[in-house]
């Protein structure tokens, strides 16, 4: 009896309990600060059902005439943004690889970390007055903010390659540029293109919200329909957005899997 008790860990307030309690207290304080009362939470499901009722039936004629063009614009914004980012990030990814350019890599990684810290929508706030209201500002914002992530991921891919071919090219008298062309790029290209496609999927979602600050796409349409409480029209926006994003995700995912096989 006594030996068993000695073997058992002493009962008491464990580390996990303390963390949970701390989180609970912070949560309650925050909920109180933003006026999220238990009563409001209890009312929520019923309120949501009522509001959801307003969304039915979706106004599909509005969907065909206004939402589809806006969605196409969102796709175009995402595409141009991804192309800009791909073109800029390919050389940066090579320069950012520790294994190839030990001295410049640090600087490139610092730049890419800074670019990653900006959400696209904050960049769009600056690009809209510079290039004017509209999708072009959105594409630039998406392009610049994607460069950071694509450079980071690309540099990691380059760092993970087999250095044998690089040494072989240089041993055969090839220049550093030739080594990049014949030894590095062929090894990394499939994986890097897969990252581009993945970023395109993310950029579709990002470009969908840019309309909120006047940078084109479907976000502005949704904001307007909800502002004037045209819920049937908003339902068309949501349905079509879900459909288009799902189709693009599935198609892009299939291509990515083939690339990485």
């Amino acid at each position: 009896m006594s030996t068993k008790a000695a073997l058992r860990p002493p009962p008491g307030v464990g580390w996990a309990t303390q963390v949970t309690l701390g989180v609970a207290i912070v949560f309650l304080l925050c909920a109180w600060a933003i006026d999220l009362t238990p009563g409001a939470l209890a009312n929520l499901p019923q309120q949501m059902v009522t509001v959801l009722g307003f969304f039915y039936p979706a106004d599909m004629s509005y969907g065909a005439s206004r939402v589809l063009p806006a969605l196409i614009e969102s796709i175009q914004i995402a595409w141009i943004g991804t192309i800009i980012a791909a073109l800029l990030s390919l050389p940066l990814a090579l320069l950012g690889a520790r294994t190839l350019f030990p001295r410049i890599a640090r600087l490139v990684k610092l730049i890419s970390a800074t670019a990653r810290a900006f959400p696209e929508i904050l960049l769009a706030i600056y690009f809209v007055p510079i290039v004017g209201l509209g999708p072009f500002a959105g594409a630039l914002a998406i392009g610049i903010s994607s460069v950071g992530m694509l450079t980071k991921l690309g540099a990691e891919v380059v760092e993970s390659i087999d250095m044998g071919p690089v040494e072989a090219v240089q041993a055969a008298g090839g220049s550093r540029l030739l080594a990049l062309r014949y030894a590095v790029v062929p090894q990394v290209l499939p994986e890097i293109v897969a990252h581009w496609l993945f970023r395109f999927e993310l950029n579709i979602r990002a470009s969908a919200v840019l309309g909120v600050v006047g940078a084109g796409g479907v976000g502005g349409v949704l904001l307007n329909t909800l502002r004037y409480r045209h819920f049937e029209k908003a339902a068309a926006v949501l349905l079509l957005t879900i459909l288009v994003v799902l189709i693009i995700d599935v198609a892009s995912g299939a291509i990515r899997r083939r690339l990485l096989r």
């Binding site: 979602r205 969908a208 919200v209 904001l223 957005t241 994003v245 799902l246 995700d249």
Partner: peptide, 9 residues
């Protein structure tokens, strides 16, 4: 598929 800002709206 829906971005965070859509949920906020």
């Amino acid at each position: 598929t829906l971005p965070d800002l859509f949920w906020a709206m």
